[in-house]
Structures are given as structure tokens and as C-alpha cells.
Design a protein around this nucleic acid. Structure first.
Lengths: 175, 175
DNA sequence: ACATTTTGTTGTTTATAACAACAATTGCCA
DNA sequence: TGGCAATTGTTGTTATAAACAACAAAATGT
């Protein structure tokens, strides 16, 4: 039936000369739990990135469970700490989080008294975001746990590989 | 808080001893829309990966909009194509998708007659998953568009960088 | 002065992750 | 062999998240 040639043609420059690669029908054990062939996917950056992101976020959430901080909350606290007084709009732009979603995130952090929305002196539409003293203290502990998480990552991928990844992925953070 | 000297501490007290360049105080326009300082985040692999994943998925969805296929659907079709007859359970394990979620994904693909759930010969509990002829034809076109998407990626990160990323991220795909 | 834009907010829709419970079936084992 | 535990697909719930749309208040442009 489906006769489209197996696997991607990896683009123009070079026709991959790969042929004869039947997908391993695991005829053996009747136990179908043999791992399936994922060749078609592991050539896709999106697939690998997705798997990596899930792994990383799970570890982050687990590692910071004691302080009950999730990745998005961490990014908000960190950016407010580094840019006290910024508005929700600029925070939204900086993190690529929608204005609407940020409202809910800040509501949660404000309810825990980690963050304050103060009236902006220059623009009465906007709020100036600040960490409270309590938020600052909490963030110190939170950052320590985040470093612990980063340590787990280094163990998983290797220290130098982690740094290479940081370098290679930086292009996505800007645009 | 423990050591971490290689990643900046950057907590609430103000010092920032090492930073000679303050985050671009927008001396010019007075408009606070200048980009915020993200130093504390760009040292976190999780943050960069998240941004990268969002960018990549958006491009994937946009590029494959004409065939109305999302990343998860693409992965399902690809793995069924490479492993005809596999069960939902092994597909679930291979992709790291929950059994429950896979049901819904397959419902959608079966409604479009891309996929068939056939009764398994050996185990009446499970289904043998197959692409239909229609599904196979569709997948050929789908894969062509997926390659186009991958081309966008290569343009964004560079061809060699993309391959490095594939290699570095492979560790997450297994465990 | 008026029209337009920006900012924060509320709401809806859709996709996804993580669980729990269930019926049908299979495998285990005493 | 008969009964019990595990597996498989399914349904359902809860929580998070992205993407929009619409709105009022305030700012901006002309």
C-alpha cells in the first residue's frame, strides 16, 4: 500500500541513498511492548525539543515543589526582580506571555504577597510591578532550588552539552 | 543559598557587583517598552527550550495549516506508518503520550479516515493501528510540508546548528 | 475636541498533562 | 482449573496553557 519512500529526503543537496529499511516487525515475542521505530521523528527538531521540554519542566516542578513555584511563575518573579517597576505590558512582551494570561499569573503571586501592583507614576493605565520584601526573600530560596534543578540537567546531558545547548537555543529567545 | 558562582545570583538586594552595564536605561524615549533584562532566565535551559518549542510549534502549525495537522497528530501518523499494526499501548509508550489522550487523537484521525483501528489477531483487548490508503497518501504530502518546516528551522538556527541540536537533544528522547 | 491606540481585565475556545475509574480481556499461579 | 491480578482501551475530571475577542479607562495624535 503506502509506497511513499520511507523517511524524509533530507532536502535538496543530497539524495540520501538509504533504501531497504523495513520497519522491523517485531514478530518475536508477541509482547508488543518492543519499542516502536521512531526514526521518522528523531530527525525533527520539534519532536526532540518537545520531549526535552517535558522532561525539564517535570524536573523543575518536582524540584521546586516545596516552594510551589512553576516555571512561568519563576520567570515572572525573576524578571520583576531584575526590572523593578516594569509594566505588565513590557513583562508580557519580554516573556512572550499574553497580556491576558499574565493577569492571572500576577493575581496568584500577588495573593501570596510575593508581588505588588503599584500605581504607575507616569501612566495611570499601567501598573508598576515590584517584588515585596517577602517576595524577595522567597526568590532567594527559589533561585537556590532552581540551581539545583539546573544541576539535574547538567547530570542528564553533561555539563558542556548543557552549555552548548544554552548557546544554540539563544537564537529563539530574541525574536 | 549555596554557592552558584557561575550563574548570577541577582536577587533582591541591589548590588549587582559584576554588571558594568545596567540594562539599558531607556534614556531616549521615556517609553518603558524597552526590552527588559532577561539575564536571570537565559541561563536556564528550561526557559530557552520553552521559547524554542513555542517558536517551532507555531511554525509547524502554520506550515502544515493547509493539511490541518498538528505536531501530535504528525507524530502519531509517522509512527503508525513506520510500525503498522502496533497497539495503542505501545504507541502511547513510544511517544510518551498518555493512553487516555491517544484515544482522542486517534478518534480524530480515524474520523478523517487516515487511520484504522483493526481488531488485533492475538489479543482481543487491543487494536492494531494501520494507516488507510488515504492516510498514506495524505502522509506523503504531510511529510513534504514537514520538511518545509524543517527548512524554516535550518534558516533560523543555521544548518549545522540544527544538526548539533538534534544530536544534543537526543538524550531526552530515550528516557 | 475627537478619533485612535494602549493597558489591564474578563471571558471563551481549544489543546494538553495528569489522574481516576471502569469493563473486557488476558496472564498468572496456587 | 478456577480465581485473582494485571493490561488495554475508554470515559471522565481537573488543571494548565495558548489564542482570541471584547471592553473600560487612560493616553496619544491630529
Amino acid at each position: 500500500m503506502t509506497n511513499h519512500d520511507r523517511l524524509e529526503t533530507q532536502s535538496h543537496p543530497r539524495p540520501t541513498r538509504r533504501r531497504q529499511r523495513l520497519p522491523h516487525n517485531n514478530s518475536t515475542t508477541s509482547k508488543a511492548s518492543q519499542l516502536a521505530d521512531l526514526d521518522g521523528l528523531t530527525a525533527h527538531l520539534g519532536y526532540l525539543i518537545r520531549r526535552a521540554q517535558i522532561w525539564i519542566f517535570q524536573d523543575f516542578i518536582r524540584t521546586l515543589a516545596t516552594v510551589n513555584i512553576r516555571p512561568a511563575q519563576y520567570s515572572v518573579l525573576t524578571v520583576i526582580d531584575a526590572n523593578p517597576g516594569l509594566t505588565q505590558m513590557s513583562l508580557s512582551k519580554a516573556l512572550g506571555i499574553e497580556r491576558a494570561r499574565l493577569v492571572h499569573l500576577l493575581d496568584g503571586l500577588e495573593a501570596r504577597r510575593f508581588v505588588e501592583r503599584r500605581p504607575s507614576a507616569s501612566d495611570r493605565r499601567s501598573h508598576a510591578l515590584h517584588l515585596t520584601a517577602r517576595g524577595g526573600t522567597a526568590l532567594t530560596a527559589i533561585k537556590a532550588l532552581a540551581q539545583e534543578h539546573e544541576q539535574h540537567l547538567a547530570e542528564r546531558v553533561g555539563r558542556k552539552n548543557r552549555q552548548q545547548l544554552l548557546r544554540l537555543l539563544a537564537v529563539f529567545a530574541s525574536g
